[in-house]
């Protein structure tokens, strides 16, 4: 995927300014930046959800699975997890397969990991459960690109490990390009092949070890970034 000269404006207010980068097939890219840096806006442009200037070109055989950051789902919405997943896939076996991939198993030792969750209304899921269901949804339709908007947001510590572990496992299994938004440098260093630092404009781009230095951190977060850097989860 190649992005060149991407700019986004809302009401004459520049949100993203002249962003260019490329992502290689089967690699993992992280997008980092402070709140309001335009990370989600960049995602929405890549997905063609909003108007933008510049070009975004994907490889022709691209099938994208998108995991949104959070969804405000009405608790009373009478839609079960199974019904939601069947919007995309008719086969019950395939639904069970992706549910298994995100850790919901038949007759699990704990209710949070059991396929009984399929009968739950999606509005009643916990943050972590919803995120796993959204990942399962993204995995249906055999995507070769996954876009994750802040995989950790709204997930407890134990669940957080599962989400990144899962990303790692998925990649090992097949040809899969992953682009994820994060603000945790540890995670970026551990899992990403390349990183795009964003603060309305491109601050840095390249392998995390070399791209993320003192200068780029200061451009994103200001002077006090060493605190952020060593913040341990």
């Amino acid at each position: 995927m190649t992005v060149s000269g991407l700019s986004v404006e809302f009401d004459n207010h520049t949100v993203l300014d002249d962003i260019s980068f490329a992502v290689r097939r089967d690699s993992t890219m992280a997008i980092i930046g402070p709140n309001g840096a335009g990370k989600s806006v960049l995602f929405r442009s890549l997905l063609n959800l909003i108007p933008y200037k510049g070009t975004v070109s994907w490889s022709e055989d691209t099938r994208i699975g998108y995991v949104p950051q959070k969804l405000a789902i009405d608790k009373e919405l009478p839609l079960t997890v199974y019904e939601f997943l069947s919007f995309k896939e008719k086969s019950r076996d395939k639904i069970l397969e992706v549910m298994g991939a995100v850790g919901f198993l038949k007759e699990a030792n704990h209710i949070h990991n059991d396929t009984r969750v399929l009968k739950t209304r999606i509005g009643n899921l916990s943050g972590g459960e919803l995120q796993r269901v959204l990942i399962a949804y993204a995995l249906l339709g055999k995507p070769n690109v996954l876009l994750f908007d802040e995989p950790t947001a709204g997930v407890d510590i134990a669940g957080e490990e599962t989400v990144y572990g899962l990303i790692h496992k998925l990649k090992a299994d097949k040809d899969l390009t992953i682009i994820f938004i994060s603000h945790e440098l540890e995670v970026v260093n551990k899992y990403a092949d390349s990183v795009l630092c964003l603060n309305k404009e491109k601050v840095c781009f390249g392998p995390p070890k070399t791209a993320i230095d003192k200068e780029s951190l200061e451009k994103m977060y200001g002077e006090e970034t060493h605190i952020y850097h060593h913040h341990d989860h």
Binding site: L47, L49, P68, L77, L79, F84, F87, Y137
Partner: peptide, 17 residues
């Protein structure tokens, strides 16, 4: 109805498909 309901869950998700 499937498309409409998916839009109730998330318009972005629907558009991304």
């Amino acid at each position: 109805s499937k498309k409409l309901l998916l839009m109730v869950v998330s318009k972005d998700l629907a558009k991304s498909q």
